[in-house]
Design a protein around this nucleic acid. Structure first.
Lengths: 230, 230
DNA sequence: GAATTCGGAATTGAATACAATTCACAGGCC
DNA sequence: GGCCTGTGAATTGTATTCAATTCCGAATTC
């Protein structure tokens, strides 16, 4: 009957959401007292949550100066996507080597079941959730929980960038870009055939394509908001 | 004139060192009050440091039960090394693509200057520091700070395992295993020649060899200490 | 007028206090 | 004997307090 979720967890989730929604401007100093009032908790649990977010790379911290929202530079976005390539390509490789046939089939099946929803969905958040879910499931096939963990962290930080990307695609195409699910299918087929090179190549080009889109989307969206240092 | 390092930082470093030295047994519950006395700080900064370590994967946390040392299972070690393969192979690939010639030459030079020291060193900690330094520098060549960050985290958690490995190698060979530096040289040569496949292949086989050694070392060292669940 | 220094206000750093929860063990019940 | 239950001790969760540091603007000097 007791609460299962602690205050720190609640605050942490709220902060992640706020970060993803751009409640903090890049490089903005975060006022602990004000934030703790907004979140309805004291500074102690708030600071614990903030420390977690620093360790995960969402925020930065300076001694005696406090917590800051991480600036959003093109090179930072590039770094995140390149790290995703590293993690997801290796996950695909490992999945090829050792994922059970039935698990691969389950993922293919999931893709099929999702397709109609994917085709009809217009809400960027919904699309993003489905896309992330696919990539997370694929990482699961690797059987490596560290890769899953790192991917989860990277995706958390990439999320708002991808949201911008998806919103842009929606606005431009009037609905959605249908290329995605075929790329996903191609990756799964490569794994099902135990064709490591095909799967890894498909994954790499898929993510790199997304990176280019996202970089472009962010460039457009923020070119007038603020000028990055590099 | 004021202190540049905060109490949290000090506590954090101390905890990392303690974790690396096996001051906590796997799955052991960490008593905050006792630990704060040992470290000479109150529970507030201690808990902030512990939260950071949880986010970085050194410890685990359960609601209302506290912090626990992460259990050391063979599959966990395997996961860490596989993640290293993912990160470092991609770093090598990126270095091939875009690292400046002079930076690559500087790394080769570093390797040359280090060789005599590497050949004569017998202290495992010293050897480990040199080895980690090489890998960190190589990751720097990628120009991707996320990959560097992830590698740094993985190496921090792998460190004590590698220490066991190196100690075992020293004890067995009476000095050190001379294969290492040649593997490092091979990787750098691949990058210098802009031969991506060669560099990545060398990197992969190097780390995988180390993984096997480490897995074996840990199996031997801990087979009688405690029996992992899986 | 520009740079600098000084002082109060605001903010962060850390300790303490107390509430909430879990743990461990004794006792009772089947 | 084994299992459940209740109670006190130990431990964690959070708020509050106060000290240390930084921030910001006004006064001062050159």
């Amino acid at each position: 009957m007791a609460k299962r979720e602690s205050n720190v967890d609640r605050v942490y989730e709220a902060l992640r959401r706020m970060a993803a929604d751009f409640a903090f401007k890049p490089d903005q100093r975060i006022n602990e007292s004000a934030l703790s009032e907004v979140l309805g908790a004291s500074r102690t649990p708030l600071r614990e949550a903030l420390n977690r977010l620093v360790a995960e790379g969402f925020l930065t911290f300076q001694n005696n100066r406090g917590f800051f929202c991480r600036p959003l530079t093109p090179s930072y976005i590039m770094d995140l996507y390149e790290a995703r390539v590293a993690v997801e390509c290796e996950a695909a490789r490992l999945a090829c080597t050792r994922a059970p046939d039935e698990d691969i089939a389950a993922l293919a099946d999931y893709l099929n079941r999702m397709e109609p929803e994917y085709q009809s969905a217009t809400d960027p958040e919904e699309l993003l959730a489905m896309d992330e879910s696919f990539h997370a499931r694929l990482a699961q096939l690797s059987g490596n929980s560290e890769l899953q963990r790192i991917l989860n962290n990277l995706n958390g930080r990439i999320r708002y960038i991808r949201l911008i990307d998806l919103k842009r695609m929606r606005d431009r195409a009037g609905g959605k870009a249908p290329g995605d699910i075929s790329a996903h299918r191609q990756i799964v087929e490569g794994i099902a055939a135990r064709n490591t090179d095909a799967a890894v190549t498909a994954m790499r080009s898929h993510i790199e394509k997304r990176r280019e889109e996202a970089t472009e989307a962010v460039r457009i969206a923020f070119s007038q908001l603020y000028v990055p240092d590099e």
